[in-house]
Design a protein around this nucleic acid. Sequence first.
DNA 1: CACATTCATCGTGGTTCGTCGATTAGCGAT
DNA 2: ATCGCTAATCGACGAACCACGATGAATGTG
Lengths: 117, 117
Amino acid sequence: MSITATRSRREPIVGECCDVVAPAPKVAAPDDETLAAMAKALGHPARVKILRVLDAHQACVTGDVVAQLTLAQSTVSEHLRILRQAGLIQGEIEGPRTRYCVSPTGLAALKAGIAAL
Amino acid sequence: MSITATRSRREPIVGECCDVVAPAPKVAAPDDETLAAMAKALGHPARVKILRVLDAHQACVTGDVVAQLTLAQSTVSEHLRILRQAGLIQGEIEGPRTRYCVSPTGLAALKAGIAAL
DNA sequence: CACATTCATCGTGGTTCGTCGATTAGCGAT
DNA sequence: ATCGCTAATCGACGAACCACGATGAATGTG
């Protein structure tokens, strides 16, 4: 084998950044402003999908997410920033890459806020 | 009394348009597109508040909602349109006014979609 | 009928969003 | 030190959003 080096081989890299299998955090429903901000962050199909991807894999580096979204790397990075600023995901730098995962408390807050409607 | 006719007196007009006290409708979680659209519709503080107002009063005509939002009538009407198009509320014309109320199935769908995240 | 009331819609201006390619910065390996 | 890879940031541009006043279509009332 060996064509011209290992061409874009990319196994999804597993690992942990947030407490995996956290036992359902209890949080209060956020105020209108925060709830609206969270809803707005979720108000784009790509960002819903990102959340699902992150959840399915527990955690992903940016490249893994990009690989599933048919969007430019810069665009995905932007969506990740929006989700992060809304508190729905969290990312930590890990060498040359960044590992993202769902924020248990942030997501729980959103769920609480919506459920209280 | 009687100044110059009943000036802007506006008791919130109660009434029913949707099935009040419906026993929690069961709906399936919507797909990513629909969920994103619903979340987007909720992604503005004014629209969150409108939903609360509607829920608190069971149903309101447009004027009642306008009275609580410190926004121009046309702006509120626009927000109502957005919520309606997202399926979160429903309105029916009633003489010269329009009565709005929360859409039980729409809201349930949103809740299901968020809870499934 | 003429008039007032209620609300949706139109037109507009300013802001934000969504997407992309290009660039930059950090890190690891050679 | 230099190269290669990863990911965030920048700049640009069109589309969509948010707010408003003005207009218009229904409906009810004198």
